[in-house]
Design a protein around this nucleic acid. Structure first.
Length: 267
DNA sequence: AACGTACCCTGCCGGC
DNA sequence: TGCCGGCAGGGTACGT
């Protein structure tokens, strides 16, 4: 599923292809999912940004196209059987592929995110300097929730989803069930570092393409980080550190993969 | 505040 | 072989 590394990879690939071009038209037949898109038509693309899992196309005239890829959304350079919308530019068209239709597009005036409350309450970008340890540690200390739930919440760090939460917890050797406030400063530092490392490595490798193939880079190439997964999607397979089987349990309503030996048992 | 549950949606999987 | 129920999970909404 598209999380920070997949959205960032998409941003990096799309940016040189769309910068300076006029977005002639946003074609779709689903005004409930793709809202207010007429606002951004006929304007040149000035920048492609990212906040958490949101992709932000800044256009001239002070408007912005906000895209969230949901679980299976992605921009492609060629149409697919699951193309749900198309961004028609001058020398190319971007196809919004989204089999399960959880993705959204929304035209807004620049920075006016009142219709996207999640975007307004996003925490710091984990790969930027704004992701400072003191604030992260304070956030952990304020919550009794399981670490997994807190990592998915987007307020402690923006853009972490199910894959990278599990991978970061494994790398930090912390149980997903641990109450956040029970972490020592040393443990919190491990988690802070693990998040940054896992996300940065995944961005370098173009994100994770799972066996369902739902995420692909815009040119159709798969990402490369899936082969580095230590626990995610590896239930029953040997932990790369100790060799004992990886377990899967539901935490915070999400499938959660961990090594009971290396990270500690559940509650 | 935070948890549980239902919902959105479709492809895929296992069971029969 | 083929049908079918259940599941996965980004997020939101609602009840407790």
């Amino acid at each position: 599923m598209p999380e920070l590394p997949e959205v960032e990879t998409t941003r990096r690939r799309l940016r040189p292809l769309v910068l300076g071009q006029t977005l002639r038209q946003v074609v779709h037949h689903d005004p409930a999912r793709y809202r207010n898109t007429a606002l951004v038509e006929g304007r040149r693309v000035l920048e492609v940004d990212r906040r958490g899992k949101f992709l932000l196309f800044a256009l001239e005239g002070g408007v912005e196209l906000v895209a969230h890829l949901g679980m299976t959304g992605g921009f492609r350079l060629e149409p697919t059987p699951h193309t749900r919308a198309a961004l028609v530019l001058e020398d190319r068209t971007l196809y919004f592929h989204d089999p399960r239709r959880f993705g959204r597009l929304l035209g807004v005036r620049r920075g006016d995110y009142r219709e996207i409350p999640l975007l307004l309450r996003l925490g710091p970008e984990p790969l930027s300097e704004t992701f400072a340890f003191p604030g992260f540690f304070r956030g952990l200390k304020e919550s009794a929730r399981p670490l997994k739930a807190l990592l998915l919440d987007q307020r402690l760090a923006a853009g972490v989803g199910n894959i990278y939460a599990d991978e970061a917890l494994f790398r930090a050797r912390l149980s997903p069930f641990r109450p956040a406030r029970s972490l020592t400063e040393e443990e919190a530092r491990r988690l802070h570092r693990a998040l940054r490392e896992v996300l940065a490595e995944a961005v370098e490798l173009g994100g994770s393409t799972l066996s369902d193939q739902s995420y692909r880079q815009p040119d159709g190439l798969p990402g490369g980080f899936q082969t580095r997964h230590a626990v995610y999607g590896r239930e029953g397979l040997p932990c790369p550190a100790c060799g004992r089987p990886v377990e899967r349990r539901v935490v915070a309503g999400r499938g959660t993969h961990f090594c009971p030996t290396c990270q500690g048992e559940g509650p």
